[in-house]
Simulated scan of single mutants.
Amino acid sequence: MSELPSISVSVKAAIVHDGKILLLSYDDSDDGGCFHYNLPGGKAIEGEPLREAVVRKVLQETGLTVRTVREMFVVEYVPGRFGKNLGPQHKTQHNFLAEITDGRTEPRFSDPRDPDQVGFEWVPLAELTGRTLIPQVAPAILDGLAANRDVLVDHAQVRWDR
């Protein structure tokens, strides 16, 4: 029997407020990358429910307090099929719609700060597809916002007994 694969699981938050979405901007051109944007988020901890991971990572990266509304879509990265452009690790990225819970909308840098992160922007949704996101998920974000469905069936929605 073959060994189970090691898969990195990350979460991202599409935080929409007043018709704008929060993006984090990065410049990793010194490392062979480029200027680009990402949704706030990061890796889930083993045993951590994904919705809780979103709340934790958004608070850690931006200082903003959010709650998850729903999971919109999942991105899978398989290194052998994509030339290992994003590293050798098999990854899934779970993208959630999240909303601010306390009215504060001014993000702050994490401590310690990611050296490649250069800022934050509230970008109008109409301008999202004109931004370089890595991975390039702008169309999926817009589709996910319009679909209004939660694709994650979690422990609160199912029975585990017989």
Rank of each mutant, 00 (worst) to 15 (best):
R159L: 15
G42F: 08
F96P: 01
Q60W: 12
P107V: 15
R70W: 12
R108A: 11
L145W: 14
R162C: 14
E71H: 04
M1A: 08
H36T: 00
R149P: 01
H36E: 04
E46M: 12
L125F: 12
P88T: 10
N95W: 07
E3R: 10
A14C: 09
D114H: 09
R51F: 04
T129D: 15
V118Q: 04
A53R: 00
E61R: 02
D116G: 03
L59R: 13
A156D: 10
L133T: 13
T92W: 10
D28M: 01
A13R: 00
L128A: 10
T105C: 13
S6A: 15
A126H: 11
S29E: 07
A146M: 07
T62E: 10
F96E: 00
D28Y: 04
V158G: 06
P107Q: 13
K91W: 04
K12V: 04
T65D: 02
P40E: 03
A156M: 05
R131I: 11
L23H: 04
V9R: 12
L128S: 06
V78W: 13
I100E: 08
L22C: 11
F109H: 06
H155F: 14
V55F: 10
Q136D: 15
N95R: 01
F35Y: 14
G83K: 05
L145Q: 10
